[in-house]
Design a protein around this nucleic acid. Structure first.
Length: 216
DNA sequence: CCAGACGTTGTT
DNA sequence: GTCTGG
DNA sequence: CCAGACGTTGTT
DNA sequence: GTCTGG
């Protein structure tokens, strides 16, 4: 499970990595928790990409409250009634710079940070759902898969992280389902770094996520 | 995932 | 302990 | 505790 | 992942 990630200021590298217009407005959000509104990347009708702000926590049709689903199993996302329509028609990417998993038991339990060794941006495979009312944000959730050898030291699941080619496939509305399922695999552990994280870097700031966003 | 708040009964 | 919000 | 299902609308 | 039933 992944219930906390980080989106640090790495512009314009991130805009370039995601093939976004250099003028795109994009907020950093060093600590992202469920229910926070986060930037997501999706494909426009003309094939170009844009950024929108969705609430992390997928709500079903008509639902307007609660946490919602923050993760969906990639192995079953095209089958489960709660997810399949979004998986088929509403795929998106959730940009990040790191994600966190907790390991240990009791008092020794602590967060670990995972990121690319070269600090490249992470692209989580994600799906989204339209809002129950026009004034509400759409909601999204990220897909999970079995962990690679590095993450497996800490946890039994990890986010699906896509490389640039896989991102293009994931955002292609016409991509065949077997191909979509094929890109949902664990990232190469040789390219990833794991480090003990501080409690502070996983604590959402008081006052809500809006106060931490820095525009640049 | 963590952090924080928590009900009622009824008084060391 | 359990629930809720972030 | 584990095992199993997982909403609703409405029909490719 | 989460909830419910047994």
């Amino acid at each position: 499970m992944c219930a906390r990630y980080s989106l640090r200021p790495v512009m314009p590298r991130l805009l370039e990595w995601f093939d976004l217009d250099p003028e795109t407005e994009f907020e950093a959000q060093p600590v992202v928790a469920p229910t926070n509104v986060v930037p997501v990347v999706l494909a426009r009708a003309d094939g170009t990409r844009g950024v929108r702000r969705f609430r992390w926590g997928l709500l079903g049709p008509g639902e307007s409250g609660g946490t919602g689903h923050i993760n969906a199993r990639s192995e079953t996302v095209f089958e489960k009634p709660s997810f399949r329509e979004s998986a088929q028609r509403r795929r998106c990417l959730m940009p990040a710079t790191a994600f966190f998993e907790w390991g240990g038991e009791g008092k020794a339990r602590r967060p670990y940070r995972f990121e690319w060794s070269d600090r490249a941006p992470l692209a989580f495979a994600a799906i989204w759902s339209p809002p129950a009312a026009v004034e509400l944000p759409a909601t999204c959730c990220l897909l999970t898969t079995d962990p690679n050898a590095l993450v497996a030291r800490i946890h039994d699941r990890m986010p699906v992280i896509l490389d640039r080619d896989a991102c293009a496939i994931w955002l292609d509305p016409d991509a065949p389902r077997p191909l979509l399922e094929a890109v949902c695999r664990a990232a190469d552990p040789e390219r990833m770094a794991m480090a003990e994280a501080t409690r502070e870097e996983t604590l959402p700031p008081r006052g809500g996520p809006d106060v931490q966003g820095s525009l640049f």
